[in-house]
Design a protein around this nucleic acid. Sequence first.
DNA 1: CGATCCCGCCACATT
DNA 2: AATGTGGCGGGATCG
Length: 884
Amino acid sequence: ENIFDRCRMAPKTPIKNEPVDLSKQKGCTPERNPITPVKLIDRPQPDPWTPTANLKMLVSAASPDMRDREKKKELFRPIENSEQNDIPDSLQYDTVDDSTVDEFEKQRPSRKQKSLGLLCQKFLARYPSYPLSTEKTTISLDEVASILGVGRRRIYDIVNVLESLHLVSRVAKNQYCWHGRHNLSQTLKTLQEAGELQYGELATIQCKEQDTEYRCGERRKEAVPGSQDRPLLDVSEPDCASASANSRKDKSLRIMSQKFVMLFLVSKTKIVTLDIAAKILIEETQDTVDHSKFKTKVRRLYDIANVLTSLCLIKKVHVTEERGRKPAFKWIGPVEFPGKLDEPRGHSPTSGPLPGAQRGACAPYQICATGKRRFTRHASFNGAQPYEGTKRKVSSEPNSPRQERQDEYCSKMINLATVCRQKIEEDSRNPSIASPLALLPLSRDSDFCVNPLSQAVFPVVQADVPSLLLPNGVSSQALHPSSPAASKTDNGKPALLPSQPFLCFPSSSLFMLCGGLQENLLEENLSAAGDVGNRSAEEKASPLEAQGTVPPARCQKRSSQEGASPSAPIGDEEPVAKKQSMEQTDVPLSLVVPKKPAESPKADCAPGSSCASAVHLEAFHLDLSSSAAPETADKKSAKTLDSQQQEKWSQNKDPDEPSPGKDHISKENANQTFVPQYLYVQPTAGLSSFNFLFSANQAPGAIGLAASQLPSLSVPCVVVPSAALASFPVVCSPSVPSPLSPVPDGSSAAASMNISMSGLASTAPVFIGTTAVVTPNASLSPSMDPQPAAHTAVHLSPVLARSCSTVKLDSPLCMGHPVALLKLQQPSSTPVTPKSIRPARHEAFFKTPGSLGDPGAWKKSEGSQARNASSVQRRLEISSTSTD
DNA sequence: CGATCCCGCCACATT
DNA sequence: AATGTGGCGGGATCG
């Protein structure tokens, strides 16, 4: 697609302007197809290149459109495909452009390409999900609009929704401040609370609704009326005190967005049909049903839904009711915001976003507005700070304490990340490393990637997105260091965010990846540690013990690698987690073999090559891993995978079944959980090899949440290949090549893709998959069912451990051999629609039990640990299969 | 043909 | 008045 875009974009003249005839012809919209010439003919267009070109230039200067196009091209490029393809693609492009293609290509971008959802993704990709506290990113609407190639109006659509969730706030005219998802959970929580007040009743009702009809909606209304509806509305109304005036209608889009989100949060099923939402919103608004109004409302909801989908908070589904199937959206974001803050550490992931206590205080503001109180317009929305003056802006203000807190830890995390990154960079300089680094840097992408992973599951548009995701481009992003910070933040719900955070360190040989995973962890981390670095060390150290204690989040810290002294106990936070996972943990531990824990990680780093390595695998569910691997190799698609996974996940989840399965899953996960924190592998060999760290964690939290979401996502770790290393075998990819072959590949490339089982040869590869571990040599056969990875993982782990231990430890030779596997789904696999997917193994795979939903399955897996090996293999296979 | 939703007019708000 | 915002809905596209 991208390609097309580009081509199109580039070459031709501004499409828009053109009268495009195509429309009809267009039927094609052949995105995929390589350029079809079709249109050309008809088109009247003049394309005299040259002349046109010049004109274009001029025009573009003058007209945004032109500009946009070009920009779009660019945008797409990164996101979608990424480098890998590039080459070929590029070639194509070129050729195409020049020669024939041009015309065809131009085809206008299909409507999808211009969709708000896609636009939103691009927009989000530009900013880190979890920006460091220190940096405040300001967003210039004009700039963004031009960059993204769209009209400003569209940006408003996006920003308004983001603002409603406090992801951004308006600083001044044309300027917004990017906050990222740090406060998201808080915001959601607030909304949930507010929603309960207002719509609580509905919720109950809702249940019925689903089955029945939306009638409920009306009912709800009724019920509600008294309650809080008004408030919201009120907001809009003048009452707000301060608000000097309400601004126009009060920014219905924002309010609608909040209300819409509230509906999800309140809904037991987490599924809200469009019509119901529209009715509710209208009512509140007081309209009576105008048909037209309804229609308009729905339109707006689509706008909002697109943005939310891009944020991976919801996804489209259909509910089949008596009448038939109705479009609906399912909430895939964090669901519980437990105590909110309180829960720091432990338990479930979902909970608390923020570290604790503080948060509470803060909360109010945002929510308040929402809540019954009415939002004051400005205040509420903007989040307190906002409007009033602009105060907000960059300065960090006191305003929101919570933010600050968040920031703090975020910043910490970030710092770590930064450090890591730097390291990486340095390393990168080294030839070997370089490549990896490269990846890292990407900022934007990363976000993109990240988000998806972590939270959401997925993205929005499946259809669209997937494609994008898959492409390598994404993957790279994922890696990128910056993200790490993010992970923690989320804490909440989103939970998984953490996943995002991966860090790669190229330090000499080491790479670390962390998957975040747990929110809790994060928080804890934060709190606990102020020092991130240290912890990280701990984590590492602990790996052995890992006991699950460590939260993934920490991983980032890991970044601090240096810090990582093995020994450190992770404890603080962990306790809880441990409990949960303890058992599991143990296993994992076993796995880990620390070579030398003692040494400080740094040391490792420094030396570059080796260090001790311990591996932990935890259960992270593979997903990550999968992703990771690829990245390493190429960087390509790791993310994609994740995203895919997520998608799947989401898909899986989705439909209706709300939770049961999930819940179980989550629990299960918990159990499983180990938190593996990371897997750290050193190359014994030393040399070139690189180390890996995986954090697997997620565990607990992840688990917990899993239910909610993305569990899968959790992919925690990533592997990074050192550049040099060509050899190492790590791969996560889903795809698995036939066993072994890869080796040769060589290094880099090869790695990327396949899993490298190869390792064997040289090393013993370890796979970490989601869980499963594979022994090195395992042969893999493809069989497999989809098991829930996670579980397996657990089980596996022990196995692995052994194997690993044996191998690894012993065999120094290898480079690290440990390979982690990740399962990923393949990106390649087409995005499946949920339906199709469910059965798919991949899903299962990644998913973790939860995803499957089928407990049985997962258990089976357990039962058949024996399979483990096989499982591993399976994974591999799967991946490979998935590829298909 | 219904579901989506892009596009951009135009009103209101702010500067 | 100019410009920023953003409601709104026609109508095109998708499926």
